[in-house]
Nucleic acid binder design. Structure first.
Lengths: 175, 175
DNA sequence: GGTGGATATGTTATAACATATCAATAGTGG
DNA sequence: CCACTATTGATATGTTATAACATATCCACC
């Protein structure tokens, strides 16, 4: 697959609002970890910060590694994968299976009320520009999916759904 | 990931009904290719036959390669991947993204009427035993998914949905 | 029946994605 | 401070998939 160019937070400084969004997300992550007795170390923070700088464009582990090496030249694949594992266990990052890439969790949805159980994310992926948007899976839809699976005897859980297509911008260009 | 043991059609002969299901599917595939001017060669047939022998357990490309080598000792990764590409292009095999594995298409659903457009498959995957079942995605559900994506400005297409959970048998054992 | 273009396969190498292992170090509770 | 555990460093390897180029086969046409 073709992927969008990456943003290096070190050499291409973000706009003020993007930077403060990142700071807010990092602060939120730190609190979240603290609350769960998990250590939000410098390595983990760096990895999350890089992902946050991409503005909706997921990175592959090795793209992330290249960026991380600018701050930490000795970084190796396990450095990245360990940080990603940690961040995923703590619901700060999602893995996008269909593109082998990683995206920071969108915590806008965390406050939403999900009477049917845990958060069940859904990703809308643009096949043209790579933009990947996390949106909440509608309750009616989640119930319908669960019910349909149960009709076949399966008990399904809240793994993210990945829907591919064109984002608004690319739809317009594509006319 | 743990995966179920593979079935080698050569050394563990199938029951009569399974064998005839396989033969029927192969004959159907041959016709389908003929009708589309695509060549259903021996290599492609062998790969599809191996997948059909697995009875709902998808295989990874390299598991497939190992089995293929029993019939064709010189087979290499591209041998398998080319056959898989062909079979996928001709809608005879699906790739399961969440497990990097391959499953023959279930042609039971082909006759169904899909007023909303092309076939949009859905897979129910058992995380315990690996059983993977292809079922049709309900029209109401597909409309709801399409509509919800459109609310966010995305135009999504018919990529398969992969829902993970427990199959009926494993639910029972799991009590 | 030869020839040439298209399609398919063989063969080697490598890219891309991910984990195992073990030693060194840093943080934490007693 | 000590022992314990989590984390990181470093090296190697496993797994999944494709690039690149040579050769073989098919088939339409002359």
């Amino acid at each position: 697959m073709s992927r969008a160019p990456v943003t290096d937070p070190g050499q291409a400084p973000l706009s003020d609002s993007a930077a403060s969004d990142t700071e807010r997300a990092l602060a939120h992550a730190a609190e979240h970890c603290e609350a769960h007795g998990a250590r939000f170390t410098a390595a983990r923070r760096r990895v999350l910060a890089i992902l946050l700088a991409q503005q909706g464009q997921p990175l592959t582990a090795y793209q992330l590694l290249d960026l991380l090496r600018e701050q930490q030249p000795g970084a190796q694949p396990p450095t990245v994968y360990r940080a990603l594992d940690f961040l995923m266990r703590n619901e700060l990052v999602h893995r996008i299976e269909s593109t082998n890439s990683y995206l920071p969790c969108n915590h806008q949805h965390c406050g939403h009320h999900h009477p049917e159980g845990e958060h069940w994310p859904q990703f809308l992926l643009c096949d043209r520009c790579g933009e990947t948007r996390e949106v909440p899976l509608d309750n009616a839809l989640r119930q319908a999916l669960t019910r349909q699976a149960r009709d076949y005897g399966f008990e399904v859980g809240a793994r993210p759904l990945e829907l591919h297509g064109l984002c608004p911008g690319c739809r317009a260009e594509h006319e």
